[in-house]
Simulated scan of single mutants.
Amino acid sequence: MSSRAPPPVPVALKGRGSASWVAGRFEKRAAVAEDDGWDALQLQQDDAISPATVVTEERARSIVSRNTSPDISFSQSVNPYRGCEHGCVYCFARPSHAYLDLSPGLDFETRLFAKTNAAGRLRAEFARPGYVCSPIALGINTDGYQPIERRYGLTRALIEVMAEARHPFSIVTKSANVVRDLDLLAPMAAAGLVTVHFSVTSLDNRLSARMEPRAAAPHARLRAMRTLHEAGVPVGVLVAPVVPAITDHELEAILSAAREAGAGSAGYVLLRLPNELKAVWREWLELHYPERAAHVMSLLQQLHGGRDYDSSFGHRMRGQGPFADLIAARFARAKRANGFARLPPLRTDRFVPLRRASPQGELF
């Protein structure tokens, strides 16, 4: 079990999405704060300080993850980091920290892991006999351009390997830092090898700061989108997640703003609450929207057959029922009105297998 002090009474922490160390589903013990009658909990709450970010470097045995999910458009993905400092309270990847005996709450955004050999493992994969080229989704579970990328540069190193192998890939990010790699992305885009999708949840800076505290501000994402578009990189927008009674009213405005910034495609995903994320989300709602929390959860349960979440393929991304149908109809109408289409398909025919590193070095 991870070592940490008993959590204080949950209080919104500046720069963090979660407010406490929500217990992971595999933990055998849980720390609970109890009032001693001397206002100890109130003092703890008043003095609450956002925990610092701690990064552990690790060596990955493999780097390419594969899936056969029928409602996901890619079969291969690469994630150079575990955990994400963006701190998005709604992140569906939070429960993965439970496998590390860490909290899907604050630990997910403060106890991070950097796969320092990621580029080397990807190079070995591309040199493996029989490797079949298929587009790779970069930074899907956790954002490859989260703040610690400025220090580690693992995402850039991965892109350099894909550029060398002429391997197609796509990026999904909430960071404006992606423009740093425009020198690599632009020539690859010209060869049909890369697309970039920006996830935009809200255009409201204050709401964004509460929901996704260390991600780029909405206007910064749109500015980065425009920069990539003007450089010839195909860009799309993902309204993800759409949150009933919190952000769903912005759906049309987000699509319009993204189209103006150069987005050529658009998609959306409704809020998903797998495993411990239910507790993280409910805690956030009670802290930031106590008067609306019950209504939000009621709408979410309507989307998932009376439960907080239905993980069934075909339902987990879109939900079902009248409210889900209304969101789908609004999205389809706004998509048509703004002239969104599909991004060009990524090319796999230009892939060049890499040579395995030889202990004798290169003679020629």
Results as ranks from 00 to 15, higher is better:
Trp284Tyr: 00
Arg333Ile: 08
Leu346Tyr: 02
Ser311Thr: 00
Leu270Arg: 00
Leu300Asn: 11
Arg316Pro: 13
His304Leu: 12
Ile327Trp: 08
Arg292Leu: 08
Lys335Val: 02
Glu260Cys: 13
Gln302Ala: 12
Met297Phe: 09
Leu238Trp: 13
Glu291Pro: 05
Pro344Leu: 07
Asp349Gln: 06
Arg347Trp: 04
Ala293Ile: 09
Leu270Gln: 14
Leu277Trp: 12
Asp349Lys: 10
His219Gln: 15
Lys335Leu: 14
Pro344Tyr: 11
Gln301Phe: 00
Arg214Ala: 02
Val239Ile: 15
Phe323Glu: 04
Arg330Cys: 05
Leu303Gln: 02
Ala220Pro: 03
Ala215Met: 15
Thr247Arg: 13
Asn275Val: 01
Gly262His: 04
Leu273Gln: 07
Leu238Gly: 00
Asp310Ile: 11
Thr227Gln: 15
Val269His: 12
His219Asp: 15
Pro290Val: 05
Arg316Phe: 09
Ala332Gln: 00
Leu228Arg: 03
Pro234Asp: 08
Ala294Ile: 07
Phe340Gln: 13
Glu286His: 05
Gly262Met: 03
Phe313Ala: 14
Gly306Ile: 10
Phe323Leu: 15
Gly319Lys: 11
Asp248Cys: 01
Arg330Ala: 08
Ile254Arg: 12
Glu250Ala: 10
Met225Asp: 12
Thr227His: 13
Ser312Lys: 03
Leu273Ile: 09
Leu273Trp: 13
Arg292Phe: 11
Glu276Ile: 13
Asp308Ser: 02
Ala257Thr: 03
Ala329Met: 07
Gly262Trp: 02
Ala253Thr: 05
Lys278Pro: 07
Phe340Asn: 08
Gly319Asn: 09
Val239Trp: 12
Gly236Pro: 03
Tyr268Thr: 09
Leu277Ser: 01
Arg342Gln: 07
His219Pro: 04
Ala245Gln: 00
Arg282Gly: 10
Ile246Leu: 14
Pro234Ile: 01
Gly232Met: 00
Phe340Cys: 08
Asp308Ala: 09
Thr227Cys: 02
Leu285Val: 05
Glu260Met: 05
Glu286Asn: 01
Arg342Trp: 11
Thr247His: 01
Asp325Asn: 10
Ser311Arg: 04
Leu300Glu: 10
Pro274Phe: 03
Pro213Ser: 15
Leu300His: 06
Glu250His: 10
Pro218Tyr: 06
Glu230Met: 07
Arg347Ile: 07
Gly262Ala: 01
